[in-house]
Structure formats: C-alpha cells, structure tokens
C-alpha cells in the first residue's frame, strides 16, 4: 500500500482536480518529488526556485509536522498520509504588487 498525499483545494486545479494522489515513496521528499513530477504546475506553489519548501508550506505525515521530524528526509511507510497545510501570512506593502 503506497503513501497517500492529500492535495489542498487551492492546489487541485494544478493536479488534475484530484484531492489526493498515491505514490510509492520511502521519504516525504520522495513523495513530494513524485507529486511534482506528475503534476509539474504544482511545483512553484510548493517549492522556491532553489528547490526549498516554501516557508509558509507545512507538511505533515499523519499528524506530525515534518519540521519536528527529519524534514523532507522523514521516512514514510505504506499507508501513511501526507498533508500539505499552508500558514497564512501577509502584511502592509513595502512594494505594491498588483496588475
């Protein structure tokens, strides 16, 4: 039984409208790698240009935040569920940015 990655609503348009995807993966990084390989448009919303997980993107294995485990090297086992949860943040303009 592979690892299940839950896809949050805002990212489903970039994942064929699916709410989850399953992959064979030994670590969280591997699972997210498979996810963003299958759904390439997802990558920029999860990772920075230098390949780091965006600071506001939190990843959980079952109910555990991977920041308190081994981050993307956190091992996964069959049947685990990976969740992607944003921290919402913002603030006043130091530079306006709108079309």
């Amino acid at each position: 039984m592979p690892v299940k990655v839950m896809i949050p609503s805002p990212l489903r348009p970039y994942a064929g409208k699916r709410d989850s995807a399953e992959f064979n993966a030994r670590t969280v990084g591997e699972a997210l790698g498979h996810l963003t390989t299958e759904f390439g448009d997802l990558r920029k919303h999860l990772f920075t240009e230098d390949g780091k997980l965006r600071s506001f993107v939190n990843v959980y294995v079952n109910d555990e935040d991977i920041r308190y485990l081994a981050k993307e090297n956190t091992p996964t086992k069959d049947g685990d569920t990976i969740s992607i949860i944003p921290s919402i943040a913002g603030g006043v303009p130091t530079m306006e940015l709108a079309s």
Partner: peptide, 15 residues
C-alpha cells in the same frame, strides 16, 4: 492602501 504587498504575494496560493 488596500493593495497586496510583495510579502503578501510570497505567502499566497492561487485560487
């Protein structure tokens, strides 16, 4: 003003 900042953008998702 009620306009998004660069900081807002860097912490946002589409949709």
């Amino acid at each position: 003003p009620a306009r998004p900042s660069l900081y807002d953008r860097d912490h946002a998702w589409p949709w």
